[in-house]
Design a protein around this nucleic acid. Structure first.
Length: 502
RNA sequence: GACCUGUUAGCUCAGCUGGUAGAGCACUUGACUUUUAAUCAAGGGGCCGCGGGUUCGAAUCCCGCACGGGUCACCA
């Protein structure tokens, strides 16, 4: 039984008996805490005050230091933390109530003026205060914060209250997303939305989530990519579109995979993959530079240089160089033998899978952002054939530290070729490859109406944020990552002590 | 999925080769009008993740389960 919690519940009743609402409705804020610091930090020397500055601010109480007839307490809002000082000048009754009933974790509003204490800390002299919300659970300890990973992922709100770095990391995440919007808008892309619930889903090689639509009594999928609907927008006359949103893949969870993740995709008419490489470099270096202040960053102890231009390597050349096998000209048997020699085998015995496996063997050798170019047609069913070699496509992935950060093509806009590619994928599906792409007749029909030459790009936002915030796992950049459901019982949620017990 | 590892007070953690459950913070009571991990004094708080086994006796040893974390394999 949680004694502290029950004690706090009783306290709320005591406050009400004293005529104090522990959950009032609003409080007028004239200054956020960072604004107070910004305005008065330079102005006030130790021991100085500015009684003419009227401050009204609020936050969560993070620390209290009682000192006889005075109290120091620290409040925190989304911008900063600031010390407040209060003494009996608030009135005997109010002082006593604060001392007895305001605890770490509660929200309070404070009215007063700024001063700097004798020990040099910028503070607010609280001429009055108001309880704004009482907490009935205790926050983690002030010194170590919350370290239990399970609790951090399940109850991120505690983590971000108590761990400043975590709060900052999520602020950075959403600043990055805002920066991407600003960048894309400046490049004259229009932000659009596409359906999450789809009867046919495509645009990537992945297992979808299945759900059920009651009105039509039909199964549906959750989108695995934005791609095919964004291209419909291009067909429909939008010659520059982007979407930032969740995609869902019913696959493994790892330090770089979460079943739902956030992806930016954009499509630019009249552009090819060369144009998209320039755009990609510009966008990503811009973000890294804004967040880190430099293009040479340290990620998990490793140096990564984002300076432009990025290296460009062709998939065929790179694999040939490292494994001495030609993914175009050598027969299946040779590819398979190389894989066997490295002690790995694909789950599905098909050339496209061999090539991907071969790439997996060498991808870790890439550290700095690199354009990996010109993938074989077999593994790129939505990319346009290479203008110089029809066995290849005009495609690139951005690889950083062996991980895929972006994927882009000169988009396939030839409806006849697209149909053939879908048919090849359908054959793989028939053969048991659950990740092979679905035939999308409506998409083919759209292409038949004509899509201009188009460059397309997808960037994994979570992975970009990982790099920009030095986060070791994707769970650290997703506020509420996927974890197994908790078994909830009424235990720990009782409202009063059960006296019948025993 | 495989292997390794963890789960003890609200939080962070001790708890040895099995012998009555510990600390710090938080909480309660008292002192203190410039403290800042405030200090000082006293006090309350535990299904030792859950279930089984071994034993006179289990937080501790063994088995199973649940939920985490790490590494490896596969998908962004």
């Amino acid at each position: 039984m949680d004694e502290l919690r029950l004690q706090k519940i009783k306290e709320i009743e005591q406050l009400r008996e004293k005529g104090i609402n522990p959950y009032p409705y609003r409080f007028e804020i004239t200054h956020k805490l960072a604004e107070i610091r910004g305005e008065f930090d330079a102005k006030l020397a130790s021991g100085e005050k500015d009684e003419n500055a009227h401050l009204s601010t609020a936050g969560r109480v993070m620390a209290i230091r009682y000192h006889g007839k005075s109290i120091f307490f620290v409040i925190q809002d989304s911008t900063d933390r600031l010390q407040c000082y209060m003494n009996i000048s608030v009135g005997d009754g109010a002082f006593k109530i604060f001392k007895e009933h305001v605890k770490v974790g509660d929200f309070v509003g404070v009215k007063g003026f700024p001063f700097r204490s004798h020990t040099g800390e910028l503070s607010i002299f609280a001429a009055s205060y108001e309880i704004l919300s009482k907490a009935i659970r205790t926050l983690p300890e002030k010194w170590h914060g919350l370290t239990d990973k399970e609790k951090i992922y399940r109850q991120r709100y505690i983590d971000t209250i108590v761990n400043k770095n975590s709060f900052k990391r999520f602020k950075t995440r959403y600043r990055i997303i805002q920066m991407i919007r600003d960048f894309m808008n400046a490049e004259e892309f229009i932000e659009v939305e596409t359906p999450i619930l789809q009867f046919v889903t495509g645009g990537a090689t992945a297992k979808p989530f299945v759900t059920h639509l009651n009105v039509f009594n039909l199964d549906m999928y959750l989108k695995i990519a934005h791609e095919l609907y964004l291209k419909r927008y291009v067909v429909g006359g939008f010659d520059g579109v982007y979407e930032i949103g969740k995609c869902f893949r019913n696959e493994g969870v790892s330090y770089k995979h979460n079943p739902e993740f956030t992806m930016l995709e954009c499509y630019k008419a009249y552009a090819d993959y060369n144009d998209m490489m320039v755009l990609t470099e510009k966008l990503i270096t811009h973000i890294i530079e804004e967040v880190k202040g430099t293009t040479k960053i340290t990620y998990q102890g490793r140096e990564i240089d984002f300076s432009r231009p990025w290296k460009r390597v062709k998939m065929r050349d790179y694999i040939k160089e490292h494994l001495n096998v030609d993914i175009l000209d050598d027969p299946d048997e040779k590819l398979l033998k190389v894989l066997k020699d490295h002690g790995t085998l694909p789950e599905i015995m098909e050339r496209g899978h061999y090539i991907e496996k071969l790439w997996d063997l060498v991808e870790d050798t890439i550290v700095n952002p690199t354009f990996l170019m010109d993938h074989p047609v077999d593994i790129s069913p939505l990319a346009k054939r290479h203008r110089e070699d029809p066995r290849l496509t005009e495609r690139f992935e951005v690889i950083v530290l062996g991980n895929e950060l972006a994927n882009a093509f000169s988009e396939l806009n030839d409806p006849i070729d697209q149909r053939k590619r879908f048919e090849a994928q359908a054959a793989l599906r028939q053969a048991g490859d659950e990740e092979a792409q679905m035939m999308d007749f409506d998409f083919l029909r759209a292409l038949e109406y004509g899509m201009p030459p188009t460059g397309g790009l997808g960037i994994g936002i979570d992975r970009l944020v990982m790099l920009a915030t030095d986060a070791p796992t994707i769970k650290e950049v997703i506020a509420y990552p996927l974890v197994r459901p908790e078994k909830f019982t009424s235990e720990g949620l009782e409202l009063e002590e059960d006296e019948e017990e025993k």
